[in-house]
Structures are given as C-alpha cells and as structure tokens.
Simulated scan of single mutants.
Amino acid sequence: MTTPDPRLHVDFCGLDFATPLVLLSGCVGFGEEYTRVAGFSNRDAGAVCLKGTTGSPRPGNVPHRVYETPGGMLNAIGLQNPGVDRVVDEILPTLDFSETRFIANVSGSTIEEYIAVTERFDDSPIDAIEINISCPNVKEGGVAFGNDPAMSARVVEACRKATSKPLITKLSPNQTDIAENARRCIEAGTDAFAVINTLMGMAIDIESRTPFIGNNQGGLSGPAIKPVAVLKTHQVYQVAREHGVPIIGQGGVTSASDAIEFLLAGATAVGVGTALFYDPLILPKINQGILDYLDRHGLESVSRLTGALRLNEPPVRGCGC
C-alpha cells in the first residue's frame, strides 16, 4: 500500500490528514462499505465521516429513498442507523485507525439527544465529532436546528461542553445568512465547519403525479450543487479565517479541478460523496490531479491553496455596465 505524497498532508484541528480528501457522512456507511471494492483504500482519504448516528436505532424513511436527477441525486434516507451504543461498542472496534482518521457524525431530534450521543463518542477512539444540524430529510431536529442561527449556537454550545474532541459543525445551505450562522457557531465553540450539506429538492413522477421520494422531498447532492457549495464555502471562510477555524468544503466534487476550487475558496479539506457511487476509485485520481496542479504552479504543499482565491474587482456603480 503506497503512502500519500507528503505534499498532500494538511493539518485539520491539530489532526494530521494524509490527504485533503474526506469521505462524507452517509456515503460510506460506517467506513466499511467500499473496503470490499478491489483497489479501494481508506488511506487515500485524510478522514472518513461515519454515517449519522442517533441515540436510539432508527429505521429511516419509507422508500423510495434515492432518486437520480440530471447532474445529481436526491436522497431521503432518514438517518437510518443502529444507535450510538452499537456503533461505539461493535462498529468502532472493527475500524483500522492506522489507515485514516475517523469522524463521528452526531444527529438528534433534541438538544439532549445531541449531548448524549456526543458524550458517548467522546469516550471512544473516534478522532473528531461532526454535529449534523442541517439534515433536510428528517421531520424533526436536523434542518430546523441548522436554519436558525440561535438554535445552531445552542446545539454547538451543548456539544462543546460534552466533548474535548475537535468539533465540526455541518452547515445547511438552506438558510438566509450562512456567514452569520457560522459566526454564532464559532462563538459557541465549534472548532471547524463542513460546508455544505445537501440542498432541499423534489422530483415528481408525472404519470402518478406523486413525488419519486417516499419522504416527498430529499437532499440534492452531486455536480448540480457545486457552484452553490463553493460560494457558501467562501462566505463562511470570510468569517472563519479570522478565528483560524478550518473548513471541509463539499458538494459536487467529481474531479481534482472541483477539489481545487473549494481549496481556493477557503477550504482546508474537501469532501467527496456522491461521486463514489459511480466511481469508487476516484480518490487517487483526485489526489494525483491535485499533485499535478501543485507541480504546474510550483507549490510545495496543498495547504498553500487554501483561501488563495483572487477576486475580480467589482464593477463601478453608475458606469453603465
């Protein structure tokens, strides 16, 4: 097994990521789904975000849960998971922590549930904790917390008191002012951000006149949301950089060029999710593409790309442009 090029290493909340790529929550199960694919290796990722975990087991939403759309995919899994006790007691011991970093994803319907799940993961070998306050396909909690800056801050503050591990807040794009939400979360104690979660969307079967998704609506991921995700990443970066808070930029990454866009916009690491469904071996391709870019531009480290965006000068108002 080859070791990733040291030029790809990034520091994320004091954790050494071997590459800037992060496998996103909900796309790789609990870290084992793609390991059965010949040629796949978790070592090609700097970190793996485990599936969203709640206090008690959840069966998830009724089918259909996934629907392919032009340029993307709708999903409404509904946080199906076996509950935090089983994850900590039975699943974490099977993971190889020498391969990569593993990040837990904490979800809940109440602040008390977020606290309980966070405390359980705090007493585990997990490397960091991502709090999901932005899930668009459950009927309680989730996106309701994420779209209200005050409520977002309350969840972050509660989880901050429950763990000493690095805390990553996953932000919703379905809100009025994502930068303000980020500011409130920083004040509440978050160590990092994941930007963005999926956009809310719907697809309709015109013959039956019903939504394809059993939950009626779901989260849209894939290339269609990338321009929105890059912009939101840059908006959060304007707030986060003042406090040294790193960002996992995510949403529609399918190539090295996509990943580099997020890095330039302000991300320290880049999430890969939907692309894995059609190309499970995409990670080494993206890593090599980033290295090729570093070579072309004479850069010694991928970290030199973070926030290196050169904005165009805005047009002068009143000039008739």
Results as ranks from 00 to 15, higher is better:
residue 120 R to Q: 04
residue 109 S to I: 14
residue 110 T to Q: 08
residue 100 T to S: 04
residue 124 S to D: 00
residue 103 I to P: 12
residue 127 D to N: 10
residue 93 P to R: 13
residue 94 T to A: 15
residue 112 E to V: 14
residue 120 R to Y: 03
residue 120 R to K: 09
residue 110 T to M: 10
residue 93 P to Q: 15
residue 118 T to D: 04
residue 116 A to K: 12
residue 105 N to P: 08
residue 108 G to C: 08
residue 112 E to N: 13
residue 124 S to Y: 01
residue 93 P to A: 11
residue 114 Y to K: 14
residue 111 I to R: 06
residue 109 S to L: 15
residue 116 A to V: 10
residue 124 S to W: 01
residue 106 V to F: 06
residue 123 D to G: 14
residue 114 Y to H: 00
residue 110 T to L: 04
residue 127 D to H: 13
residue 110 T to A: 09
residue 105 N to Y: 12
residue 120 R to T: 04
residue 115 I to G: 08
residue 118 T to P: 03
residue 112 E to S: 15
residue 122 D to I: 07
residue 110 T to E: 06
residue 104 A to E: 07
residue 114 Y to A: 02
residue 99 E to S: 09
residue 111 I to M: 09
residue 108 G to M: 01
residue 126 I to E: 01
residue 99 E to K: 05
residue 107 S to V: 15
residue 93 P to S: 13
residue 97 F to N: 12
residue 94 T to W: 07
residue 97 F to L: 10
residue 107 S to P: 06
residue 107 S to L: 13
residue 101 R to V: 14
residue 120 R to F: 07
residue 118 T to S: 00
residue 95 L to H: 03
residue 98 S to Y: 08
residue 109 S to R: 15
residue 105 N to K: 09
residue 105 N to R: 12
residue 117 V to G: 01
residue 119 E to Y: 12
residue 116 A to Q: 03
residue 114 Y to S: 04
residue 98 S to Q: 06
residue 106 V to M: 08
residue 100 T to C: 00
residue 117 V to H: 03
residue 100 T to D: 00
residue 126 I to W: 01
residue 97 F to S: 10
residue 104 A to Q: 04
residue 96 D to L: 13
residue 110 T to V: 09
residue 102 F to H: 00
residue 99 E to I: 10
residue 121 F to Q: 00
residue 114 Y to V: 11
residue 97 F to H: 04
residue 98 S to K: 09
residue 107 S to M: 12
residue 114 Y to T: 12
residue 124 S to C: 07
residue 99 E to T: 04
residue 103 I to M: 13
residue 124 S to V: 04
residue 126 I to R: 02
residue 107 S to C: 14
residue 111 I to G: 11
residue 122 D to R: 08
residue 116 A to F: 02
residue 115 I to T: 12
residue 99 E to H: 08
residue 117 V to R: 09
residue 108 G to N: 05
residue 98 S to F: 02
residue 117 V to I: 03
residue 118 T to H: 08
residue 96 D to F: 05
residue 110 T to C: 05
residue 120 R to D: 01
residue 94 T to V: 14
residue 95 L to G: 05
residue 98 S to M: 04
residue 119 E to K: 05
residue 114 Y to F: 11
residue 104 A to V: 12
residue 99 E to M: 07
residue 106 V to I: 12
residue 121 F to E: 02
residue 125 P to M: 09
residue 122 D to C: 01
residue 125 P to A: 07
residue 109 S to E: 12
residue 119 E to V: 05
residue 93 P to G: 12
residue 106 V to W: 02
residue 126 I to D: 01
residue 122 D to E: 09
residue 94 T to D: 15
residue 96 D to K: 08
residue 93 P to Y: 13
residue 108 G to H: 05
residue 103 I to R: 11
residue 105 N to W: 03
residue 98 S to D: 15
residue 117 V to C: 10
residue 127 D to P: 06
residue 126 I to A: 03
residue 96 D to N: 13
residue 125 P to N: 05
residue 103 I to F: 15
residue 102 F to E: 04
residue 115 I to M: 06
residue 107 S to W: 09
residue 125 P to Q: 02
residue 123 D to Q: 13
residue 109 S to K: 15
residue 98 S to R: 14
residue 111 I to H: 11
residue 100 T to V: 03
residue 101 R to Q: 10
residue 97 F to P: 02
residue 117 V to D: 08
residue 113 E to H: 08
residue 116 A to C: 06
residue 102 F to T: 11
residue 100 T to M: 01
residue 98 S to A: 13
residue 121 F to V: 03
residue 96 D to E: 11
residue 105 N to H: 05
